[in-house]
């Protein structure tokens, strides 16, 4: 199956000669279709640059990419994509309804019913007659998302989509993103610095730092197995003596660094030594810890 996005040594530098600043190194990435792909990184890591590059807003300094199987990005390809890049960019003198109409014209669409459906979906039907300049940040964010959804895209590129949204709005966004992927088969590339949100909504992530890819994989793989095996047992000192260097105390129990298939044998070993095991479970690694660990390794 063709990847939604493939990059080959894609990079961007601003300025020339000794004063050139690299915003993105030489990125090799493959985003499969049909899932939510998160792009993570601290401020200035190159996330937005990557998204702007693949949308043709900035020109690459090196390397190349294929978007939806196409290496030449023109309106034909762009009309299969919905994008919301950084802060919502909207015409202040238009109402929400007029904004969607103007952008629909630009995409070659003429479907007023679709525009109304999108307004309904992003919760702006009531405020659709108001000029955008009167909107709050969250409302602008919703409208920008609606604009991205307008053309029923195969691929949705969302840069910090939850910026400015209140907690219910973030929850709605999460549900919407999952619905789009699971019910409509849309591929979503999403950049965010809200790691908890990414963990909840993304299937796969790439972690970028200083323009370089430092980690990539399925979220479930990245966060599983790395947190250790937690055991609450008594007497704890006796258990600690048996497990030796493999274990370290944590809270009222012990955390043991073992591979997943070694857990049954470990429990048998403790029980065989007359130790009472009250609790045994795998600690899941949070994406935040994976992220911070990746950042440390890339420094």
């Amino acid at each position: 199956m063709t990847a939604a996005l493939e990059t080959f040594g894609l990079g961007k530098s601003y300025g020339r000669g000794g004063r050139a600043v690299s915003a993105l190194g030489a990125l090799d990435l493959s985003v499969p279709k049909g899932l939510v792909y998160g792009v993570l990184g601290p401020n200035g890591a190159g996330k937005s640059t990557l998204l702007r590059l693949v949308l043709g807003l900035v020109k690459p300094s090196r390397g190349g990419f294929r978007l939806l199987g196409e290496s030449s990005i023109d309106a034909r390809v762009l009309r299969r994509i919905g994008a919301m890049i950084e802060a919502p960019s909207l015409y202040p003198f238009l109402t929400a309804r007029e904004t969607l109409r103007a952008l629909a014209h630009l995409s070659g669409l003429n479907d007023p019913a679709r525009e109304e459906a999108v307004l309904e979906r992003v919760g702006l039907s009531e405020a659709a007659h108001r000029r955008v300049r009167t909107y709050s940040m969250g409302m602008k964010q919703r409208l920008a998302l609606g604009a991205a959804l307008l053309a029923r895209p195969e691929l949705l590129i969302l840069d910090e989509p939850t910026n400015g949204l209140d907690p219910p709005g973030i929850q709605e966004m999460r549900v919407l993103v999952r619905e789009l992927v699971e019910k409509e088969g849309v591929t979503i590339i999403l950049s965010s610095h809200l790691l908890d949100e990414v963990q909840k909504v993304c299937d796969r992530v790439a972690i970028i730092n200083r323009g370089e890819l430092v980690s990539e994989g399925r979220v479930s793989d990245l966060i599983s197995g790395q947190g250790g095996f937690f055991i609450r047992a008594a007497p704890r000192e006796k258990a600690l003596a048996i497990l030796g260097a493999r274990a370290r105390p944590q809270d009222d129990g012990l955390v043991v660094d073992i591979p997943p298939d070694a857990a049954p044998a470990l429990i048998r070993e403790l029980v065989g030594a007359n130790i009472d095991v009250f609790e045994a479970r795998w600690l899941t690694q949070s994406l935040e810890r994976v992220f911070l660990s990746s950042m440390d390794q890339s420094q």
Partner: peptide, 15 residues
């Protein structure tokens, strides 16, 4: 209004 990113993700620059 920083709206190029809304327009040029739908149509080509020269048109």
């Amino acid at each position: 209004w920083e709206t190029w990113r809304a327009t040029l993700t739908r149509n080509d620059r020269i048109p």
